[in-house]
Design a binder for these strands. Structure first.
Lengths: 286, 286
DNA sequence: GGAGCGCTGTATCGTATGTTACGTATTTTG
DNA sequence: CAAAATACGTAACATACGATACAGCGCTCC
């Protein structure tokens, strides 16, 4: 319809301007690429504003914007805007079509995304509000210390959670480095402390041993694992089992990541009073 | 906000222009009523076109359209259009995925989860297969080295990605530790290398500077950022803009996390041949 | 290291757009 | 039914917007 380009196409089906852009963004000079990126990032509303506003948002000059739309095959800026409006109109008419990128079939994107979204829904289905509230309360309890550790691939999750928790409360420690190093930290742990462990298969022996001794010392363990449950579940006070299956060579930790973010949010809310003061203090330190 | 009218009303809650119109359509003269009806019928796109087009669609003259928007309380036509655009923006930001959601009944599912799922859908909607394939191809290109780095909260994502990529191919480096340490690594970077940066607001100056000098050295930058685009986007070859808004004190990096996992999967698939051999070797090393 | 090309921004121009004034038509009211 | 008031459209106006010419700059390729 509109996007018949120079070559007698037929090779590729371009059905939206967004696709057209990502198709050509590789062949664009730097300035026009910035225009393309800002348009995609705030698609499509920036394209409906004036050239001046668009150019300012993108940090380039007006002519660059015009060259950009010219490269997309439009005769002039108004024609480009009309195309965007038509697209919007079609989208608003049939709300069902707004679900996903129309590149679904056969693409590499959507099976992965679909599986991940399913994983999250499943994970949260088996997770009660009460359970999350309990864990959040435990993590917000300031009488004890909080330690976090993860396995080979999940340690970044422990880091991520630690980075946030350490801001809203004191005594949060991420256990990193060599095994011998964090094993020695066991001596600091007691029955008022919490140990958050991330462990998905293949479960690491070192982590299991670590959890066991911690448990013997009375430490409360919160375990993030997969649906097959790490052996650490045996010692854990709270177990969060996330779905990990995706069409990829690797397991996905995304569901656990979202649970972690949810907990971070809950703990923060719980510590709001002291947390706010603490955050202000930290700001002033910077 | 915008619709405070003449009287200081607290009488009626007007939250959209469409409501405002149907509220006043009774008091309008015939011509303006026709304008109102045609706008409602094709809401809101006709209002984004020019006065001439609007007037022609409604079968009235231009001044009638202007008197119509004036009666709604707007100073001039552009102001009216801006209001419509803002409304559209808000609508597009949070897609009404509430329509079909099998996970709601009874238990109050965390609004956090809902927002996160929306964020992912939105993020991937602006992301084409082609774009991901391009980035994956670049990351799988074994002629150069791959460096990864992140900001205060996003560095764990860089770690996560690095942990996986380093298994399927050599020459993958996560830049950690003190700024001076990784800044010195710039000397190893050239035009065949790729630098993956995670940077969401508030954007870190140190990262921006780092990206700039890397860019000057010809390094290809892949940027993971939020929808407001880190200033690094200026130097980036590829930009991935993830949605981050959630009902929490913190921004969410979950959408970026999923994109990262998707890329990891794509790269792995691309390197399948050599990757499989490599993985077997690693297995035997353990 | 030099010549050529391509990209980008500044400044200028023409025009399409929103705006306003005014005259005519239509309805309302005494 | 007359007279006034309101509503509407035509036409002229001014502004701001998109378009273009040109010069400076960096980059690539001999």
């Amino acid at each position: 319809m509109r996007f018949r380009q120079n070559g007698q196409g037929g090779e590729k089906m371009i059905s939206s301007i967004a696709e057209l852009i990502s198709d050509r963004i590789g062949t664009m000079p730097a300035g026009e690429r910035r225009a393309a990126q800002t348009l995609i990032a705030n698609y499509p509303l920036i394209g409906l504003k004036t050239v001046a506003e668009f150019s300012q948002s993108a940090g380039v000059s007006s002519p660059t914007i015009l060259r950009f739309v010219a490269r997309l095959g439009f005769q002039n800026y108004p024609e480009f805007q009309s195309a965007l409006q038509d697209e919007l109109a079609a989208q608003l008419q049939s709300p069902a079509s707004r679900t996903l990128n129309p590149s679904s079939p056969g693409g590499t994107v959507s099976p992965m995304l679909e599986a991940t979204l399913d994983n999250m829904r499943e994970t949260f289905r088996h997770l009660s509000d009460k359970q999350l509230a309990d864990i959040a309360a435990r993590l917000a309890d300031r009488r004890g210390k909080t330690f976090l550790i993860g396995g080979r691939f999940t340690d970044p999750l422990a880091r991520y959670m630690a980075a946030h928790l350490a801001i809203v409360q004191p005594n949060v420690f991420h256990l990193a480095g060599q095994e011998s190093v964090w094993r020695d930290r066991l001596i600091d742990m007691g029955k008022h402390d919490v140990l958050v462990i991330f462990d998905i298969r293949r479960y690491q022996d070192s982590l299991v041993r670590f959890a066991e001794t911690a448990h013997q010392r009375g430490v409360q363990i919160v375990l993030f694992t997969d649906q097959w449950l790490s052996p650490i579940a045996r010692f854990a006070r709270h177990v969060i089992a996330g779905r990990t299956a995706v069409p990829s060579a690797w397991d996905s930790s995304a569901a656990l990541f979202v649970v972690a973010e949810t907990l971070i949010g809950a703990v923060t809310r719980q510590l709001e009073a002291e947390g706010a003061k603490r955050i202000r203090e930290l700001e002033s330190l910077r």
